[in-house]
Amino acid sequence: MSGVALVILILGFISNVSGALECYFCSGINGCQTGFEDNKTECRTQTSPRCYVARTEVNGHVTNFSRGCYEATQCNFICQWASPGDVTTTMCQECCNTNLCNTGSARGAGTFMTPIIHLLVGGTVMALAMSTATSK
Rank of each mutant, 00 (worst) to 15 (best):
V53N: 01
S2D: 15
D86N: 11
I29R: 04
S48C: 00
I8K: 11
L100V: 02
C51R: 00
S48P: 00
Q93I: 08
C96T: 00
G3N: 09
V53Y: 03
M113T: 07
S66P: 03
A129D: 00
R44Y: 02
C75R: 04
I10Y: 09
N99T: 01
V121T: 05
C26T: 06
G19S: 13
V87R: 11
A20S: 15
M113F: 09
V17L: 15
S131R: 15
V53P: 00
T103I: 12
G110R: 03
T41Y: 09
S15I: 06
C101G: 03
W81P: 00
N102E: 01
I14R: 05
A127E: 01
Q33E: 12
S18R: 08
N39I: 02
N30A: 15
T98N: 09
V121G: 00
N76K: 12
T56V: 14
T45W: 04
S2T: 10
H61L: 08
K40F: 02
C43Y: 01
Q74T: 12
N16W: 04
G110Q: 07
V87S: 12
N99R: 11
P115V: 02
I29A: 00
L11C: 14
H61E: 15
D86H: 10
G3D: 12
T111E: 14
T88P: 03
S105E: 12
M130W: 13
G31C: 11
D86W: 01
